[in-house]
Amino acid sequence: MVVEQYISDLLYRYNCVVVPSFGAFLTQKSSARLNTVTNTFFAPAKSISFNEQLTSNDGLLVTYIAEMEKKTFEAALTAVEEVTKNWKSTLAIGDKLSLPNIGLLWINTEGKIQFQPYQEVNYLTSSFGLTPCKSIPITREILKEEVVAIEEQIPFIISPEQREKNTFRPYLKYAAIILLALSTGLTGFRFVQDRIQNEQVARQEAQKQITRQIQEATFFDTTPLELPTVNVDALSSAVLNPITTGKHHIVAGAFRIRANADKKIKSLQDKGYNAAYYGTNAYGLHMVTYDRYNDAQKALQALKEIKRSQSRDAWMLSEK
């Protein structure tokens, strides 16, 4: 009777197969693994272990043998006990017991049974047909750039016959250099063109900002204001004549009509400012100033105060 064959059959379906009066073979599912030394892939499997403490007969193995051998339970049990007695005798004299498709058993120096499972059979039914697969290490392809660098460093001696066969290679190199130069030139041309265009846009934007600031600081009023009676002699020097002293002028506004400019000068003078007529600007507008200064720092302080208390549209005009 080949008991180990029946044990092997039951290990496919059960996690524990007890051999009466000998021990139990246990299985436990293990994940797929890779042997990095041999580059071998192993599918998920059932790992087998042996426990000599489990010797009580659970009837699984004996019942299965009785069915397969067409014997009674008692006859099958007697046959199993006879086989296990021979197994124990083999181990007792120091020999190793080999159970095909299961594992190898022997007794150590402490009198304990040791077990080493065989790996030829995978008892996990879900991994049926998945045999170990050995893979060859992949050798990565060397990049072409590295090969070219090596060719440049190491001189090659080419015979005339070989050079005639490979005369197309220099032309390919020259063609690649020409294509690279053309692409670089086109890229540089586009970069310069974009930069010129950006500078033009920046100039236009700056001109718009300057024009807007001039317009914000200008009072456009095309209707002459009605002037009260004014002593022309008293204002002739301060109002009618352009100012000539001071380099930094605090501009109050610019008017298309001179009469409105004179009205503005009188209004500022009534408030205590040393207002005066500056002259006309590039747009033909009559400019009126709050005051003028030779010291730029004092002019800036005065402009800050005027912006805070009088008009946020005031601005400073400095002469060279």
Results as ranks from 00 to 15, higher is better:
255 F>H: 03
211 T>I: 10
252 A>S: 14
219 F>M: 00
224 P>V: 14
222 T>W: 10
190 R>S: 15
225 L>V: 13
230 V>W: 11
188 G>F: 15
202 A>P: 04
194 D>E: 07
229 T>A: 10
203 R>P: 00
244 T>I: 15
222 T>Q: 02
247 K>D: 15
260 N>K: 01
183 S>R: 04
200 Q>F: 14
254 A>I: 03
262 D>W: 01
204 Q>D: 12
229 T>W: 05
184 T>P: 00
218 T>F: 01
241 N>Q: 15
190 R>I: 13
176 A>M: 09
184 T>Y: 12
217 A>R: 01
252 A>E: 03
200 Q>I: 15
225 L>S: 06
202 A>W: 05
236 S>V: 06
247 K>S: 15
201 V>I: 10
260 N>F: 01
236 S>N: 11
194 D>T: 13
176 A>R: 08
254 A>E: 00
204 Q>W: 04
238 A>Y: 09
183 S>I: 05
209 Q>A: 13
228 P>T: 12
240 L>S: 05
184 T>R: 00
234 A>L: 15
200 Q>Y: 14
243 I>A: 09
258 R>Y: 13
215 Q>M: 07
258 R>A: 09
196 I>C: 03
214 I>V: 11
188 G>S: 13
183 S>E: 09
245 T>Y: 11
243 I>M: 06
248 H>R: 02
258 R>P: 05
237 S>M: 07
187 T>M: 11
264 K>T: 12
219 F>N: 01
192 V>N: 08
232 V>K: 09
237 S>G: 08
208 K>L: 14
240 L>G: 07
215 Q>W: 01
226 E>V: 15
229 T>K: 13
196 I>H: 06
188 G>R: 06
230 V>H: 09
249 H>Y: 08
255 F>W: 14
208 K>E: 14
193 Q>C: 00
183 S>H: 03
191 F>C: 05
191 F>L: 14
232 V>W: 07
257 I>A: 05
205 E>Q: 12
217 A>S: 11
178 I>W: 09
196 I>Y: 10
240 L>C: 00
193 Q>S: 11
193 Q>F: 11
240 L>K: 07
228 P>E: 12
213 Q>G: 06
